[in-house]
Simulated assay, not measured.
Amino acid sequence: MLTATTLSDAPGCPLLILGSSVGTSVETLWPAAVGRLYGRYHVVGFDLPGHGRSAPASEPFTIGDLAREVVALADRIRPDTSFLYAGDSIGGAIGLQLLLDFPERVSAAALLCTGARIGEPAMWRERAALVRAGGVEPVVAGSRERWFAPGTDPAVTEPLIGALRATDPESYARACEALALFDVRDRLPEIAAPVLAVAGALDGPTPPDGVALIASTVLAGRLVVLENVAHLAPAESPEVVAFLLDQHFDESRRAGITVRREVLGPAHVDRATAATTAFTRDFQDLITRYAWGEIWTRDGLARRDRSLITLTALIALGHHDELAMHVRAARTNGLSVDEIKEVILQTAIYCGVPAANTAFRIAQQVLAEEPR
């Protein structure tokens, strides 16, 4: 049985279950990110067999076995209700198995630094044999190199390395063998729940292309790649991970980020998200939730009409950086080059010739960048 640890006790809030990677524990990987979720979720993490608070494995197990244990854990908290799920590495693999085997139970999932297949089976069997022969110490140096981006603060790395050293070797070996058997690449199109796939740009064990495969193959996937992050994103970049979870798990925020990406382009929005700091997060949340989630999603005006209004307002107020961005958005929303020209001409009368002059210069630069 997996041992659960409550990280945020909020019984009236949505239930969020967290899974960790091989060699770590939920109490070393997730608390920094959970602490930035503002108490909006009832957060419960679980440790793999022989990891953290969980008892050692008494027999071999598969990723499917672990998924069933997670559902049993959820039933002990809130029987027969759906829950949110986030997991890193093998925790992400468990999340995929949950989405496939128990689709009615997982309302949305965030899969971090993971893959539909992770590594090669032979590699996992070799690592299992190494740990059985010499304990976990022979894998410490390699794990330190794989897990963290260069220059990661020791205050982040050392508790996680301590959790690895405290892991039961036989349980670690059996987790490796479970990953050797895991491959759900051909089943990804079956997954219908919203999936956020988060990759570390410096992640060697689960590189971004494998995470991208998940996002592009499930029915409702989004990929975000975090710069200067390796394999343990919740510990390496807790502010951004918390913000991404909040965007994904709250329906109004998820609607806002969907429209924002459709209008402004995924690359622009995901760069802004990945650059979020504690100082800017609330502002980014304000934009996503209210500007995009409540205004741009309304049925009263078509998106092309909202672009017309937005261009006019930005020209009138002299917001030139935003104007360049929204000229691109206007093209996405169906405005022709001639229609954009007409908008700027109209503003010359009602907003002033100098404002329109600057707007023409900015728009011409943006439109010149369009592919021919």
Rank of each mutant, 00 (worst) to 15 (best):
L96S: 04
V136M: 05
L99H: 06
Q97N: 12
V140I: 08
G142F: 05
P138E: 10
A129V: 12
F83V: 13
G91H: 01
A133W: 09
G142D: 11
R146A: 09
I94N: 00
S107R: 13
L99K: 07
V136C: 05
T152D: 09
F102A: 15
I94R: 02
A116L: 09
E126K: 12
Y85F: 14
E120F: 14
E104H: 15
A149F: 07
S89Y: 04
L112F: 08
A116C: 13
F83H: 06
I94P: 00
G135V: 06
V106G: 03
F102Y: 15
A86H: 02
L96A: 09
G134Q: 12
A149I: 08
E104M: 14
G119N: 11
G151M: 09
R146S: 09
S107N: 12
W124K: 02
V106M: 07
G95M: 03
S82V: 13
A133N: 09
E126C: 10
P121W: 12
R117H: 14
P103Q: 14
A108W: 01
F83A: 07
G134C: 11
V136D: 01
A141R: 05
V131P: 00
E137A: 13
A149K: 04
T81I: 12
E137H: 07
I94H: 01
A93G: 11
L96F: 11
I90A: 06
V131W: 00
A108G: 11
L100T: 10
L111A: 01
T114G: 07
R132N: 10
E145F: 10
S82W: 08
I118W: 00
A149L: 07
W124Q: 03
L130N: 03
M123R: 14
R117G: 09
A109Y: 01
L99E: 06
F83W: 11
E145C: 09
R125I: 10
W124S: 02
C113E: 04
C113R: 01
A86E: 04
E120S: 15
A116G: 09
A86G: 07
P138A: 08
V140D: 02
E145R: 13
P138T: 09
V131M: 03
R105V: 12
L111T: 00
R132Q: 10
Q97V: 11
V139D: 00
E126R: 13
W124C: 03
R144H: 08
G92Q: 04
G135I: 05
A110T: 12
L130A: 07
Q97S: 14
M123T: 15
G135M: 06
T114C: 10
I94G: 01
E104S: 15
G119S: 10
C113M: 09
L98G: 05
S107F: 08
A110E: 02
G119Y: 04
A93S: 13
L130E: 04
V136L: 06
I94Q: 03
A86V: 08
D101Y: 07
L111S: 01
